[in-house]
Structure formats: C-alpha cells, structure tokens
Write a protein that binds this DNA or RNA. Structure first.
Lengths: 192, 192
DNA sequence: TTCATAAGTCATCGGTCGATGACAAAAAAT
DNA sequence: ATTTTTTGTCATCGACCGATGACTTATGAA
C-alpha cells in the first residue's frame, strides 16, 4: 500500500508522513544528489505538502541528514577473517536491493552529494570509522591501514559501477556471480 | 604566472580567457559538482566576467562538457598484459597530480556530477568504451567483461577514496606505495 | 590619427529555490 | 457539542541562478 493509497483511506498520520518523506528523500537524493533535488520534488513523490518537510525536519539539510542516517555497522564482528568480512559487506551493502530496502544504501546516497563539505565529512567518518576500522584490525601487516582502504575502495567502486556508472555486467550480476572474485581480491589485499 | 597576473600586464586575450575559464571550471566542478557550482563562482576564480562564459561556450552545460572532454585513452595499447595496463592507469589517472594538470581527471569530475542524466551517460560511455574495453580484450576468461568491470571498480574506487572520501592513507600515498598491491589485485582478477 | 572590430562590462530579466507565517480542517479531549 | 490540539494547506518572500542584449573600451589595421 503506497502512501497515497493510505491517505485516501486514513488521513493525517504524522508518522506515516514522515516515513514517506524519508523514503522519497532517500530515492531522490540517491538519484539526483542533494543540489539536484528540490523539496518540492520530494514532497510530490511522497504525495505531501512541501512545507511539511520544514515542519517535521527543520530544513532540507536536516532531512538529508535524517535520510542518510545509517544505523551503524551490521553484525560484523571484530577480529574476523578479512576476506569473509569483505564478502559479507559486498552481499549486504553493494548488492542490497534498492527497491526493497526503502531506497539505496546511505553510503551511496552520500557519495552522490559529496560536493557539500558536511556530507563529505560525514561520509569519511562513516567509511573510516564504521567500516575500515574493522578491516584494519583484522589485517596482520605493517601497512594494514592502507590495505584496508584498498579493500574499501574496491567495495565502494563496485557500488559505484552498479548504481552510478551503470556498467552492464556488474549492474545485472547477482552476488553469487562475484563472490569468488571478491574473495580472491580480498585475499590478495589482506594476505601478505 | 596566474591569469590575474597576466591580465595586469597584457589584457584582452581570448584564448587565455577561455583557458582560464576551463581550468577554473574543472576545479569547481570537481570539488562542488555541476549543481553546486555557479557561473559566477567559476568566473570569479578565473578573474573574468561571468557573461564571457556564455559568449565563449554558449551555456554552463556546454562549458561543463568542454571541461570534462577527455582526450581519449592515453597510450594503452590493445592486447597488453592486463596487470600492467591496470598499473599504468593507476599511475596516470588515479595518482595524477591535480595541482599540476589543470584540475582533476575528467572521470572524477563527471563522477561528482553524475546526478545529471547526460553526465551519467557520458561517464558510462567513457568508462565502458575507452577503458574497460581494453581490459576485456586482454582477459582470457569466459567472464572477461565482468572481470574487467571489477578492475575498473577498483581503480575508480581508489580515485574516489583519494579525492572524495579523503581517506587518510590513500590520500597521502604515492604510486610506489600501492604499486605491488594493485598488481596483486589485477592479477587476482585477470588470471583464472 | 582614425576607425572597425574584437574583447570585456553592465543592468537586468524570468524562473526556481529554500524557507516562513498565517490560516483551515480534521482528530482528540473535555 | 464545544473546545483544544494536532495535522495539513496556502500565499508569499527574498535570494540566487542561468541567461540576454545593449553598451564600453582596448587593440591593431589602414
């Protein structure tokens, strides 16, 4: 049931309105970036009056922040094997189903709006703090941090190829198609 | 000698003005994206009147197109070893000196403005046609195209980590620091 | 020196943007 | 049934943006 359908049956539901705005914002921001998206666009997608954005979120920037707020790392335990960590992340964030999960992954959404300094700072924070730290700890080498960043580069690049560049093979691929190759790359980067 | 210095000594030079606009545009677009950059910003950086953009390039969009116009692939010969091809590209496009070369590499500039459909189309064209094709030809495997895209993802991801995310190790690294690791990844992806 | 033209400047337009505050209507409380 | 509070709507503002056309000034040929 879409939000519009909902509004025809039961009207005036603050929580549902906010949720609809958040999902619409995530989609718009992911596709067109922060600057390329207007509050009127988001509101139209959500079937809602544009001014509700300011009432409920304060500003367009605050709505963006709320939309890309990522609930920290999933269940990636520290100290695990870096290669399985990489495969886990590829499965869960790179090959996440954008249609099902209420929009694209926050990291990719931020990536498309990285022109804004605050967004870039938050992105760096999320990538380095939440994700790369786990890798760097798990790698046993003098240049562990560099290797971790290279693993991150590979994953981010895959997400980019799929959702931004739209390269033919990767866009259509399933996780199983790349599992072995991801494992090989992660092994090459984490085993000295 | 900057353009401003030039203007104080010898004035009214169409070619120099166009060049200054192109360089300023490349820098601004790379840092803030197409939507985040105004014609007045570019003109101010170039020390030039904003209306000259329209006189010399037609529109902001046309200036962008001219700024990211990439002079096709460098000297990457077909049929070479994929691993040395990868290292060559990493050295020449990922680790290109943004300060020296008149701004960032066109691919990264486009990446930051990928919200616009025309830009995304041109980016896909450049990535797939000019770069990945050479890889796919050189790889001898049934899934050569997919492997080539994964190599591309790795390179693009590295560029992104350096210029957008600003990850600490990769941002400060020299080509020599990653040469061996890049070679290892390329080998893992291209040798079955 | 004069004058034609190339190069740069100025004033301004219409449109869109984010944001505000006054207002209307629907639920909920009394 | 009346009042209160929540939820959504409307009109509009000031700022900025890309773009245009008329105007001014420098340059180089005659």
């Amino acid at each position: 049931m879409t939000y519009a359908d909902f509004m025809t049956s039961r009207r005036r539901d603050k929580a549902a309105t906010k949720a609809a705005l958040l999902e619409a914002a995530r989609r718009r921001f992911a596709q067109h970036g922060f600057d390329g998206t207007g509050v009127r666009d988001i509101a139209a997608d959500a079937g809602v009056d544009p001014t509700l954005i300011f009432r409920y979120f304060g500003s367009k920037q605050d709505l963006f922040t709320a939309a890309v707020h990522t609930e920290v790392p999933p269940g990636l335990g520290r100290g695990a094997d870096p290669a399985v960590l990489a495969r886990l992340l590829v499965r869960d964030v790179v090959f996440t189903d954008a249609a099902a999960d209420g929009g694209e992954h926050p990291l990719l959404v931020m990536l498309r709006s990285a022109g804004r300094p605050e967004v870039r700072a938050r992105l760096r924070e999320a990538v380095c703090g939440d994700y790369l730290a786990a890798f760097a700890e798990a790698v046993d080498a003098p240049d562990a941090a560099l290797r971790a960043e290279l693993v991150g580069a590979f994953l981010l690049g895959m997400g980019l190829m799929r959702s931004v560049v739209g390269t033919p093979e990767l866009s259509e691929a399933e996780f199983a198609d790349v599992d072995a190759l991801v494992d090989a790359v992660a092994a090459a980067l984490t085993r000295p």
